[in-house]
Nucleic acid binder design. Structure first.
Lengths: 187, 187
DNA sequence: ACACTCATGTAACAGGTTACATGATTAC
DNA sequence: GTAATCATGTAACCTGTTACATGAGTGT
């Protein structure tokens, strides 16, 4: 049920169309939650008929018209209620770990290329996160001015989580590569 | 489709019943893949009818009889084929990150208890992993004896991944707690 | 008696994935 | 012309979750 809430949070941060939400789920929110446009349109339709969100037709020039969604009272209440409920520390799913343990019954060295591919994907994502952090949270001339901005600081701490995750993964994949190298032919 | 492969790997490591597999998915394999017994029985039935695995009725005394599954030729081939295919670096799903960004529109400080609960769950898991590592990979009198054992070393590197993940999470949750504390009432 | 472990399942439903479909505008 | 972006959807299917169901044996 958390896709509903992820969409509500995104719409609170900024109202937008299903298409725009789908794009956000490829970027910022996509760092910790994925969803395709098909899923998003389905959930938007349900939340609209439940009165959680409002729609507004927005005519555009040079582009197709769009429907802009924003969070209504009941949607906000639903989000609040969910925030108050405890959630279980999430279950993990690492295909790569299954492959690594499975490689013991095949050719471990054959997995090296695959692990390297994943390592590249993670270094790319790390670079992307770090660029985003510098852009959005670089605060060049903003030392001690005013009260903390919750939205901004909470977005930043989530991004720091993504950065920590990518760094951890890169270090671990290096460990995996070193381990696999011990099983290469001729050794 | 990777539950199939996770089960195949587990059965290659050691043949067993659906019930035993379900228990393994709460422990060792469960570190990186979760599955309930209902899912497992469904997949076992399908893999058996596809000839990927063999069944053997094992009568037991003092306990109900069980069906012991083991991997057959076609199952091994299917696993090999899957190991050779590239997989996409996995998509993440962090309910807690959704909550943290959502807290900006509610009461950020109200999330502290929840984050502390998660932190406790992760320190517990870390302790559990470390105990397992000491037990299974402590190698007290085993410095340079013989060739590397692929199954054992690959299980160990996957476990090290779990340990790195829990350590990263604990450090990040501390960061989150420090951030949330800035929004507490009276500050 | 009651709860727990071992052991195997069915059924209904919710959620996620993949494929297909349409149509306008902009850039090369 | 061809591809890419913007924009919204339907349909079929596969996976995962939750609830229900049964039944023997062990421990308190």
């Amino acid at each position: 049920m958390a896709l509903d809430h992820a969409i509500l949070v995104s719409l609170l941060e900024k109202p937008g169309s299903g298409y725009e939400l789908a794009r956000r789920f490829e970027r910022s929110i996509g760092y910790f939650w994925t969803a395709t446009h098909q899923q998003i349109y389905r959930v938007l339709k349900r939340m609209e008929s439940d009165g959680w969100i409002d729609v507004r037709d927005v005519p555009q020039q040079g582009r197709p018209d769009k429907k802009e969604y924003s969070v209504a009272g009941p949607g906000r209440d639903a989000l609040s209620a969910w925030l108050g409920e405890p959630i279980e520390p999430e279950s993990v799913r690492h295909d790569l770990a299954v492959k690594i343990r499975g490689a013991a019954f095949d050719d471990p060295a054959a997995l090296i290329g695959e692990v390297e591919r994943h390592r590249r994907a993670h270094t790319d994502r790390l670079a992307h996160y770090l660029a985003g952090e510098a852009r959005d949270f670089g605060e060049p001339g903003r030392p001690f001015d005013g009260p903390p901005d919750a939205e901004r600081e909470l977005q930043h701490v989530v991004l720091r989580g993504g950065i920590a995750y990518e760094r951890m993964m890169i270090a671990w994949l290096d460990d995996v590569l070193a381990t696999l190298a011990r099983f290469e032919a001729g050794h």
